[in-house]
Design a protein around this nucleic acid. Structure first.
Lengths: 113, 113
DNA sequence: CACAATGCATTGGTTTCTTATGTATCTTTG
DNA sequence: CAAAGATACATAAGAAACCAATGCATTGTG
């Protein structure tokens, strides 16, 4: 089951920030693959969504970039800045609280870890 | 704390369908108040978002309506159709699964119920 | 050597929400 | 009893965020 894109809306920045907070620097394509893998193909980030998001986060000062060459092919690495690290934590916490609120609203059962 | 509207995006239809699946018929304003109350003011549905959503759900055949008068004031009640009941369950399940997936992706801890 | 995969990026369009506005009635309060 | 706030519907203009499609270029594979 692939989630309706409606649901994923609004969580993309959070997902990207979190992925970068774990494994140091990552490049765009790598992020899409990591997310695909971690979610068993249920969340697939399109490139048309990802790149504008990365550029926006960079513009906000949350990411720094580093362009390298693999042979003749360009690869652009992204890394969290200090404010990006802070923002990443904030976003994840906010999502966690949002989930708690939605549990009440939707009367969801909690699956034990 | 009021959630950034970004997070709520994509969940409005699910919220509305779920509220209607519990307390029989409800009118628009009542839904906004119920959600506000249940979430401790953390989710506030704007009317500009709600009414178009209700109309869309009605157009999809998920809701039926009933207009009554309280004195001279109009009140429009909404109720789930059979397909609406089915869709409501689907949407809530999908959200629950989405949350499970996001827990992995964001490495969230589960709060016991 | 064609085709899939890797890797960047942009454009046009749609959906969905916000902000603002409009209309009207009812209730509370100074 | 007038003003203000709450109730209750609705739409319109614009912004935000995403999708689908496309483009370019290189590298690996059958």
């Amino acid at each position: 089951m692939i989630f309706s894109s409606e649901l994923i809306k609004g969580t993309l920045k959070t997902i990207v920030l979190k992925q970068l907070s774990e494994g140091n620097k990552m490049y765009g394509y790598e992020i899409t693959q990591k997310v695909k893998e971690l979610t068993g193909d249920r969340i697939q980030i399109s490139e048309g969504a990802l790149y504008p998001t990365l550029h926006a986060l960079e513009k906000e000062g949350l990411l720094t970039t580093e362009t390298i060459y693999i042979g003749k092919r360009v690869r652009k690495y992204y890394r969290l800045s200090d404010s990006g690290k802070k923002k990443s934590k904030e976003r994840v916490s906010e999502f966690a609280e949002f989930v708690e609120t939605m549990k009440i609203l939707l009367d969801l059962q909690v699956k034990p870890a």
